[in-house]
């Protein structure tokens, strides 16, 4: 939420629907950001040393020169870079993301296929850990300096301190190999022919371990943040006022303090949505989850410019949307706090 925009919200909120105003403001800011990102990304991707043609022929163990020249032409990389840039812009304007030579398929198809497993994984793990984090954070604040608080603080720290692939590998050993309760990895049971609810359950079983691994990490982060923010507020004036009014501790915690504590949390979640692609790479690798994180890493290693640029653009749009939602929520919480 930008200073000027929230100011504007406060002034105009009697006449214009505030949510609309926030949205318009945010989108106005988003357009130059996206424009800049388009330019920066294009050149950033080309900054990575290594030739896409070399990377393309890597799967074939190399190639002779004639073949490479042919591929370079096909990829449009034999044009001067400014011409390439122009072609790229005009294609993006037509929402054409081109062809992925590394995947032998249109870029959009490649990305869309990989998008939803990642979104599913993230929505689940972040959602659950948000709820858990808020609950644990508030509980810790409520029982400040007691064993409950200390246990929560300590546990969240230990969880936070473990390398993610460590947790992942250990979970596989325990739950998949030893107990045989859950699958080792993958998205679904291939060739099971399941549909409907049975299929959803199958995906859910496959998702449990990766979501748990990711969720434990986020849970630790959110608990820490909520707890820290709540402690900040314990002695603030409005909390004292609320307490003086004789409100119960529970009401003070959940209705008065939590909204304040949620602001930094929301900011953090918004930010994390932006970097979701990198955050899940390790987990997607350990659990063979066919998601976007791995695609990004693969595309970067393969110098698959078209896929990379499309992912980068999508990630920008995602961040803009996430920030918009965070802004709306923040403004909403702000209003509620003002009313209080």
């Amino acid at each position: 939420m930008d200073a000027s925009s929230s100011q504007a919200v406060r002034v105009r909120r009697k006449t214009t629907p505030w949510a609309f105003q926030v949205a318009v403001n945010r989108l106005k800011q988003a357009i130059p950001t996206i424009a800049c990102v388009l330019v920066v990304n294009f050149f950033l991707v080309r900054l990575i040393p290594g030739d896409p043609v070399d990377a393309f022929v890597a799967k074939a163990q190399g190639a002779d020169q004639a073949f490479k020249d042919h591929i370079r032409h096909e990829m449009g990389l034999d044009e001067p870079i400014w011409v390439q840039f122009g072609i790229y812009l005009s294609k993006v304007a037509h929402l054409d993301f081109g062809w992925s030579f590394q995947n032998s398929a249109p870029v959009l198809d490649v990305i869309l296929l990989r998008l939803w497993p990642t979104v599913l994984l993230l929505v689940f793990s972040i959602g659950v850990s948000l709820l858990g984090g808020v609950f644990l954070g508030v509980t810790a604040a409520r029982y400040s300096q007691t064993w409950k608080d200390r246990t929560i603080a300590f546990m969240s720290m230990v969880l936070y301190a473990m390398p993610a692939f460590w947790i992942g590998l250990s979970l596989i050993v325990v739950f998949s190999v030893k107990l045989r309760l859950l699958p080792v990895g993958g998205f679904d049971t291939v060739g099971s022919g399941k549909t409907g609810i049975a299929y959803a359950l199958d995906v859910g079983r496959h998702m449990t371990l990766p979501a748990l691994t990711l969720g434990l990490f986020y849970l630790a982060v959110y608990t820490r943040l909520v707890r820290a923010s709540m402690f900040e507020l314990l002695d603030s004036d409005f909390v004292r006022t609320a307490r003086a009014k004789g409100l119960s501790e529970r009401t003070v915690l959940w209705r008065h303090m939590l909204p304040h504590a949620l602001l930094p949390l929301l900011t953090l979640v918004g930010v994390q949505l932006g970097s979701l692609l990198s955050g899940v790479i390790v987990i997607e690798t350990v659990f063979s989850w066919p998601g976007l994180g791995r695609l990004t890493f693969q595309a970067a290693l393969q110098r698959d410019y078209n896929v990379l640029l499309a992912i980068l653009l999508m990630s920008t749009v995602l961040v803009v949307c996430a920030n918009l939602i965070v802004d709306l929520l923040s403004a909403w919480i702000d209003r509620r706090m003002d009313v209080n």
């Binding site: 998949s176 993958g186 791995r294």
Partner: peptide, 22 residues
């Protein structure tokens, strides 16, 4: 009847998949 090639990028995960009879 069918051959399914499962893509498992991590060698440790492949070993575990053998052990778990997947």
């Amino acid at each position: 009847d069918q051959i399914v090639f499962r893509i498992i990028t991590d060698p440790g995960a492949r070993a575990a998949a053998f052990e778990a009879d997947e």
